[in-house]
């Protein structure tokens, strides 16, 4: 029996130490995910809290053959999406009213930036773009799946993603230029 399996078993028995251990093990990684989906750290922590409550509530449904981290991650993503749907301040921004397709950007710039910097750029996207981008680019959902989860058309998802990607690339390039200028200026 692996450590993880034992940990899950102990958590299922209701051992507080095991539960805290599980939380400590995954909280930082999961907060990174929640952070990408929300607009503020407080909201991200709310999602994290809600997500972990669900993790412990449904831990008995976890099958030990899969990776525990992936299972928790999936719960966090679903919790984040539900949070966006239920939270009024995200609802307006989450509306997907632009079904027009946008041309795929040919740009594939090298991302020379920290993860948090990139996450902050992603968080500057409108919530709809942000959500679709996170789900497709990072979590790997297909547009069909995204459409089903968010209740939108596949085409809408694709369109939102393209716009998000183009915007993000522009911002990254701009960020790179500014960084270089700053670098030169520093010299």
């Amino acid at each position: 029996m692996t450590d993880y399996q034992q940990l899950v078993k102990d958590c299922l028995k209701g051992k507080a130490t095991a539960q805290q251990k599980l939380y400590d093990l995954y909280a930082e990684q999961m907060l990174g995910i929640c952070y990408r989906y929300t607009k503020s750290l407080a909201d991200a922590e709310d999602v994290l809290q809600e997500g972990f409550v669900k993790v412990f509530k449904y831990l008995h449904q976890y099958r030990s053959d899969g990776e525990l981290g992936a299972w928790i991650r999936r719960i966090m993503v679903n919790t984040a999406i539900n949070y966006l749907k239920q939270n009024s301040k995200y609802q307006y921004d989450l509306s997907f009213t632009d079904p027009a397709l946008h041309p795929v950007s040919e740009d594939n710039p090298q991302v020379y930036m920290q993860a948090k910097e990139l996450a902050n750029l992603v968080r500057q996207l409108p919530t709809g773009y942000q959500t679709v981008f996170n789900m497709h680019a990072v979590e790997g959902y297909t547009h069909v799946e995204i459409g089903e989860i968010l209740g939108i058309n596949e085409g809408t998802s694709r369109s939102q993603y393209m716009r998000a990607r183009n915007l993000l690339i522009n911002w990254i390039e701009k960020h790179s230029v500014e960084s270089k200028l700053g670098l030169y200026a520093g010299k």
Partner: peptide, 18 residues
């Protein structure tokens, strides 16, 4: 690149969460 960056992303939650 984005996936790789974000997969490595870690943020420490505040002490109130647990």
């Amino acid at each position: 690149q984005v996936q790789q960056l974000f997969n490595e992303m870690r943020l420490k939650p505040s002490a109130e969460v647990w």
